[in-house]
Design a protein around this nucleic acid. Structure first.
Length: 582
RNA sequence: GCCCGAAUAGUUUAGUGGUAAAACAAACCCUUGGUAAGGGUUAGACUGUGAGUUCGAUUCUCACUUCGGGCUCCA
C-alpha cells in the first residue's frame, strides 16, 4: 500500500469518526456521504433547522476523541438492501444511494468500528484508536445534495487528518502562510486595487500602481504577439441584440448579459466576449487566401452578470479585462497558428517562473444541447487539438464537458495561494462562429472557402492573472513590475537636494523612483520601504553626496558597495530589460 | 442564487444596553540620525444601511447591502 492510499484510508476512517460524533451530539441529523478529498475529507449532513458553525467544532472534536478510544479494527458486514434501509429510518439520502447500489449489488457492505457503522465501500486503516489522532475540523459550508442546485442544501463539515502531529501542524502552518499572500490582502496593503460599495460588487477599481502593473504585463503579451504577426483592433463595449442572436449568445447566455435599452427602445447588451465583434472586422471586406491568416488582438473589458455568491476577489468579477485575440485562418493553417500561440504562452509564463497545467477541454457527448454544431464537427476539431497537444509532449489532462459552447479548448491552469486551480491562458478552435457568420476567403482555386477561427487569450483575464501573479510573488514583484523600483533614502535633510538630483537622473533614464522626504530616521525609512516591497533602497548621506555615489540595499536585504550613479543606472536598466525574476 | 460567518477612524484591531479605546498611517513641533519602528502635540468614527424591542441600541432582534469560506455556475 502506498503512502497516498494510506492517507486516503486514514481520512476516510476519520470521516466515519466525524459522523459518529455528530450523530451522538445531534441524533436527528441525517447522514449522507463523507468522502476523502485532496488534503482532507468532509461529511455532508442534513441538520434540519439546526445551524452548525465553526463554534461547534471543539464540542465535536472532543466527542471524536472520546469515541475513538473504543474503536477497534473495522469489521465488514454484508446487508441486503431491505436490511440496509432499516439502518437509516427517515433518511432519503441513504435510501437513494441504497436503491442505486442495489441495481448492481445484491449485498451492500457496511463498515463498523466501535458502536458506529455506515454504508461504505471500504478502505480503512487497521488500528483506529491508535491512528485517528492528529485531526482537525477546518470549516463548515453549504453543499447541494449530489451537487445539484435543485436539491436540498446540506451542511458540509470539512476536516483533515495526518499520520503525525508534525505533519498536521505543518499543513495548518501552510494554510496560515498562504493567507498572508492572499491577493485581496496584498492588493490593499500595496494599494493596487480595491472595490467600492458605491460602484458595486465584482467591479474592481485600479490605483495608479495597480494600473502600471496591468499595463506592463499587457505590453509584454503584446510584444510576444507582435513577433507572431498580430495586429491590434478595437471595438465598442456594447452591441445590438442582433449580433448576439446571430452568434448564439443571446439564447445561451441570456442570464449573464447586462442588457441596455436605448431611448428609442432598441435593445443592446454589454459585451460578455469579443469574438462576435471581431468576426465583423474580418467580414467587412472580401478576403483572399493571400491575406490569411488575419490575426487580431485586443485587450478589452468584458461584462458578465455573475451571481453575487460566485464573485471572489479578482479571480471572479463582473467586469474583467481579456487580453483577447482571434485568428481567422484556413484549415491548413490551424496547427501552425496553435503552436505559435502555445509558444507565446510558454514564453510568457516561464518569464515569471510559473508551472502551468495543460487541460484539453472537450465537449460532453451526453449533453449536445449545450453546444453549437453537430457531433461530427466536434469530434474532428477535438482530434486536431489532441494531435497538436500530443506532438508537444507536455502531458495534459482531458476534461469532458469543459469545452466552450462553440468549440473545444486547450486551457492552461495556474494555482492560487490556497491551491485552487484557475484557468488563465486558453486556445480555442471554433468552426461554429465562422459558420454562423458565414466567414470565408477566396482560395487558390478561386473558390469560396469556409475558414476557421481560433480564440486565444494569454492571461485570460488580467484581473484573474494578477490575482495569481500577486500571490505567486507574495507582492514582491520582479524589478520590471515593481511600482517603485528605487526609493531614495536621504540620511538627513542635508541630502534632500542630492537625493532629488539622483532621482531626477534615474527618472530621466526610465526608472521609477521616489524620494522619502519625511523627517524620520533612516532606519524608519528603510523599514517602510521594505514593507512597501520597493526593490532598491538607495541610501544617500554625507559620504555619497560628496562622492556622487549611492549606497544600495536590495529588497532581499543584500548590501551593495557604494556605486557611481552611471553604474547604478546601468545596473537597474539591465535588470529591467532582462525581466529577471529573483 | 443557496449554506455558514463577518462588518467599529485611511489600515489593523479593542470594547460596552447609558452615543466609543489603542496602534500604525496623516499634519505639525522637537530630534540630523548609517541599513527593519526616536519623542511629543493635533486632527480623524452619526460603530455598513434601514426598521423593531427599550426610558435609552454600536451592543439584542429582523430585513437589506457588502465582504470571506464553500455549493452551484464560470463563453
Amino acid at each position: 500500500m502506498n503512502d497516498q492510499q494510506n492517507l486516503d484510508n486514514l481520512r476516510h476512517s476519520c470521516a466515519h469518526l466525524l459522523a459518529a460524533a455528530v450523530i451522538e451530539l445531534w441524533p436527528d441529523a441525517k447522514r449522507t456521504i463523507g468522502p476523502t478529498i485532496e488534503n482532507g475529507f468532509y461529511y455532508d449532513f442534513d441538520f434540519g433547522d439546526i445551524k452548525i458553525s465553526a463554534s461547534d467544532f471543539p464540542k465535536i472534536e472532543q466527542r471524536m476523541r472520546e469515541l475513538i478510544k473504543t474503536w477497534e479494527k473495522f469489521e465488514m458486514h454484508q446487508l441486503t438492501p431491505e436490511q440496509a434501509r432499516k439502518e437509516y429510518p427517515n433518511n432519503p439520502y441513504k435510501h437513494e444511494l441504497i436503491s442505486e447500489f442495489s441495481k448492481t449489488d445484491h449485498k451492500l457492505s457496511f463498515y463498523k468500528s466501535g458502536k458506529y457503522w455506515d454504508l461504505c465501500r471500504g478502505g480503512h486503516i487497521d488500528d483506529p484508536s491508535q491512528q485517528l489522532k492528529h485531526f482537525k475540523l477546518l470549516s463548515v459550508a453549504g453543499a447541494y445534495w449530489r451537487g445539484n442546485e435543485k436539491n436540498k442544501m446540506l451542511t458540509r463539515i470539512y476536516g483533515t487528518i495526518f499520520l503525525t502531529t508534525e505533519e498536521l501542524n505543518k499543513y495548518l502552518m501552510q494554510i496560515e502562510e498562504a493567507k498572508k499572500r492572499d491577493h485581496k490582502k496584498l492588493g490593499k496593503e500595496l494599494d493596487l486595487f480595491f472595490f467600492s460599495d458605491l460602484v458595486g460588487p465584482g467591479l474592481a477599481l485600479w490605483t495608479p500602481k495597480g494600473t502600471l502593473i496591468r499595463n506592463l504585463v499587457d505590453d509584454f503579451v503584446w510584444q510576444l504577439r507582435k513577433e507572431k504577426g498580430y495586429q491590434k483592433v478595437m471595438i465598442p463595449h456594447i452591441t445590438k441584440k442582433e449580433l448576439y442572436e446571430k452568434s448564439g449568445h443571446w439564447l445561451k447566455f441570456a442570464n449573464e448579459l447586462f442588457k441596455i435599452k436605448s431611448r428609442e427602445g432598441h435593445l443592446f447588451a454589454m459585451k460578455p466576449m469579443n469574438c462576435p465583434h471581431h468576426t465583423q472586422i474580418f467580414a467587412h471586406i472580401p478576403r483572399s487566401y493571400r491575406d490569411m491568416p488575419q490575426r487580431y488582438a485586443e485587450t478589452t473589458v468584458c461584462y458578465r452578470d455573475e451571481q453575487t455568491g460566485e464573485l471572489s476577489g479578482l479571480s471572479r468579477v463582473r467586469s474583467f479585462t481579456q487580453d483577447d485575440a482571434h485568428v481567422f485562418c484556413q484549415n491548413s493553417q490551424v496547427e501552425n497558428e496553435f503552436n505559435a500561440i502555445w509558444d507565446i504562452v510558454k514564453s510568457f509564463y516561464s518569464a515569471f517562473g510559473f508551472q502551468l497545467k495543460v487541460r484539453l477541454s472537450f465537449h460532453d457527448p451526453n449533453n449536445m444541447k449545450a453546444y453549437l454544431g453537430d457531433e461530427d464537427g466536434w469530434k474532428k476539431t477535438e482530434l486536431t487539438l489532441k494531435s497538436i497537444a500530443d506532438k508537444r509532449k507536455t502531458g495534459y489532462q482531458l476534461a469532458i464537458g469543459e469545452a466552450a459552447f462553440y468549440g473545444p479548448k486547450i486551457d492552461f491552469l495556474a494555482q492560487d495561494s490556497l491551491l485552487r486551480q484557475w484557468q488563465v491562458a486558453t486556445i480555442q478552435l471554433d468552426m461554429n462562429m465562422p459558420y454562423r457568420f458565414d466567414l470565408s476567403c477566396v482560395n487558390e482555386k478561386g473558390e469560396k472557402e469556409r475558414i476557421v477561427m481560433i480564440h486565444a487569450a494569454i492571461m485570460g483575464s488580467i484581473e484573474r492573472f494578477l490575482s495569481i501573479l500577486i500571490e505567486h510573488f507574495a507582492g514582491a514583484f520582479p524589478l520590471w513590475l515593481t511600482p517603485v523600483q528605487v526609493k531614495m533614502i536621504p540620511i538627513s535633510a542635508d541630502q534632500l537636494t542630492y537625493a532629488q538630483q539622483v532621482a531626477d537622473l534615474l527618472s530621466k533614464n526610465g526608472i521609477r523612483v521616489e524620494v522619502d522626504r519625511r523627517a524620520d530616521r533612516m532606519q524608519k525609512k528603510i523599514r517602510d520601504a521594505q514593507l512597501e516591497k520597493v526593490y532598491y533602497m538607495a541610501v544617500v548621506g554625507e559620504r555619497e553626496s560628496a562622492s556622487e555615489t549611492v549606497t544600495v540595499r536590495e529588497r532581499s536585504g543584500k548590501q551593495l558597495e557604494p556605486l557611481k550613479l552611471a553604474k547604478f543606472v546601468e545596473l537597474v536598466q539591465q535588470k529591467i530589460t532582462q525581466k529577471s525574476v529573483d
